[in-house]
Computed example of a mutant assay.
Amino acid sequence: MTTRPLAQKTIGVLGGSSNIATGHYYRFLNEIVNARLGGWDIAETVIVGMNFGNIEAFLHADDWASLEAYMAKKVDALIAAGADVIVGVSNTLHKPMEAILASRDIDYIHIVDPTGEAIRKAGLKRVALFGTKPIMEMDYARCRYEEKFGLEIVVPSAAERAEIDRIIFDELVKDEIRPQSKARYLEIAERLAREEGAEGLILGCTEIFLLIDQKDRPDFPMFNTTRLHCEAAVDYALANALEAQ
């Protein structure tokens, strides 16, 4: 390429949910761009970080209205900073993000969409979903998988959901990786495959891939929402750049 600066779009990252996930988003975005373009090229990004303490408090108080109002100010900061497209680094927070971005003139990549497309391409129909309690218990993510991609979503039992959620909030968002928690996640996944007919597993929290990933069960497809979301963001950002080569 001889024309500089390279014409790529700016990816707006709504971060802080958690800071651990945000760091990995930034790493993945840059690694993927560099893998595609080579040399010294990386992504052009704008990151606005939220205070995870606020998010945790709103979620556990079931105060979605306050959470949406808090997030809306941060989304507006991304737009003002020149983002061309927005990604949110949390499966859980896509519930308020959908409402916020419906009234704003900016492109947005929903985390379910690249994951649902990957599952469909893999030829699977019935998949298990891990994540925070809202992701597993509310219908906003499950319905999008089911209605847009024709998938059947199965979720863990109530006791398993509580355990999965606790591990996310008490360990993974603090970058604590414990062997016993890894073993428990895999045990739950295996039960869902055996008893519920799950053909694969959605890692539906952006920190879960740190605990379990495809290498742990090569014969049981796992879908890393964090990585797939970043791949889709780079596709968007580099569309014009790659056409110009």
Rank of each mutant, 00 (worst) to 15 (best):
A141E: 08
M136E: 02
R166P: 05
R161I: 01
E160Q: 05
N91R: 01
G123C: 09
A99P: 08
D107A: 13
F149Q: 04
V89R: 04
R104C: 14
S90P: 03
M136L: 12
A128P: 10
H110P: 03
L129S: 11
Y108F: 15
L151Q: 02
E163I: 02
V87H: 03
A158G: 06
V155N: 04
E171P: 00
D105R: 09
A118G: 08
E160K: 00
I164W: 01
D84L: 08
Y145L: 14
T115A: 12
G116D: 03
K95I: 08
R120W: 09
C143R: 15
K148E: 15
Y140T: 11
E152F: 05
G88C: 15
I167W: 01
D84Q: 05
E137Y: 03
A159P: 05
K121I: 06
R144H: 14
I109M: 12
S90W: 01
V85M: 09
V85C: 13
G88T: 15
S103C: 07
Y108R: 05
L172H: 06
G116V: 06
G88W: 09
K125W: 13
F169H: 11
E117H: 08
I153P: 00
A102R: 11
L172V: 10
A102M: 10
I109Y: 12
V112S: 09
L172Y: 07
E147I: 00
C143T: 15
T132Y: 07
G123P: 08
H94S: 04
R161N: 01
V154K: 02
P96N: 10
R144N: 10
D84Y: 06
P96Q: 12
F149T: 07
L93F: 09
V155S: 05
E163H: 02
A118F: 02
D84P: 07
P96D: 10
L172Q: 04
I111Q: 04
V85I: 14
Y140P: 04
I111V: 15
E146C: 09
V155D: 02
I100G: 01
V112I: 11
E171W: 04
I164C: 03
R104P: 14
D170M: 10
R120E: 14
L101F: 13
E160N: 02
E152I: 13
R104Q: 14
L124M: 14
V154M: 08
D139F: 10
Y145T: 08
T115C: 13
L93K: 01
E146A: 13
F169Y: 15
I119N: 03
Y108S: 12
V87F: 02
P156M: 00
V154W: 02
L129Q: 05
R126P: 11
R166G: 11
L124N: 10
D113F: 11
D84F: 10
P114A: 14
I167R: 00
P156S: 00
G116S: 09
G116P: 01
A159W: 06
A102Q: 12
N91Y: 04
M138N: 03
H94M: 08
I168A: 00
G116N: 08
P156G: 00
P96W: 05
Y140I: 10
G123N: 13
I106D: 11
D105Q: 14
R104A: 12
